[in-house]
């Protein structure tokens, strides 16, 4: 790189810092110095190359990461089920206490996507006092939608499917079901044509 004595009084450290701040605020002395410009360009090229190396490394690993490796990796990961809060199904008595876990309720909500083609459910949130059987709760659901599906139809179907499932398996009073469309994505390669184009 340009030797420090050709940097018109600036240091490599200063330039490296300047680059990381997106060359902003503009430093006129640095921008006017040919030596500094050379050094900055070299560092910028290096940054591009770093990105390329990261991509090449990852691609190489993808080739090596065969299914056996992935299976071994997965098999060794210790996980704990996430039950979440316990939601009573009716008022507890000295001899009886019936409930359903928040985790089970979330999986019910995720399962509602089977009735709403084109929707993939992401994160689910239950807001309200889950400690009482007939609590008023609002439900927040993040979803992704496959291109080609009508957003309004799909989300309306999902809303109905969620309401039905919650009514069958909990005693909660559902105040509102908010659905946030996080993104649109391509279908799976194995996915057929969406049912309802347009």
């Amino acid at each position: 790189m340009t030797p420090e004595d050709e940097l018109d009084g600036h240091t490599i450290e200063e330039l490296s810092d300047y680059l990381d701040h997106g060359r902003s605020p503009r430093n006129r002395s640095i921008e006017a110095s040919p030596g500094c410009q050379n050094a900055l360009q070299a560092m910028e090229r290096l940054r591009d190359l770093a990105e390329q190396l990261a991509e090449a490394d990852t691609e190489a690993e993808k080739e090596r990461a065969d299914d056996r490796w992935l299976q071994r990796l997965l098999a060794g990961i210790v996980v704990e089920a996430r039950p979440g809060r316990r939601i009573p199904l009716e008022e507890a008595t000295p001899i009886s206490d019936l409930g359903i876990t928040e985790g089970a309720v979330r999986s019910l909500i995720r399962d509602a996507e089977t009735d709403a083609p084109g929707i993939v459910v992401g994160r689910t949130r239950l807001h309200g006092d889950l400690g009482t059987a007939t609590a008023e709760v609002s439900v927040n659901v993040d979803v992704g939608i496959v291109y080609g599906h009508n957003i309004e139809t799909a989300t309306e179907r999902l809303r109905t499917a969620i309401a039905d499932r919650l009514a069958a398996h909990t005693s909660l009073q559902i105040r509102v079901i908010d659905i946030t469309v996080r993104d649109l994505h391509e279908p799976d390669e194995v996915d057929g044509t969406p049912e309802e184009l347009g």
Partner: peptide, 30 residues
């Protein structure tokens, strides 16, 4: 194919894995 999970974005898959869905976690690992 019906789930479309492996084509979904990180926002969806990671959110779902955070909720305890093992299938989504597997997609994330892959």
């Amino acid at each position: 194919p019906d789930r479309g999970l492996s084509a979904a974005s990180d926002a969806i898959v990671a959110g779902r894995a955070a909720d305890g869905d093992l299938d989504a976690f597997e997609v994330l690992v892959r």
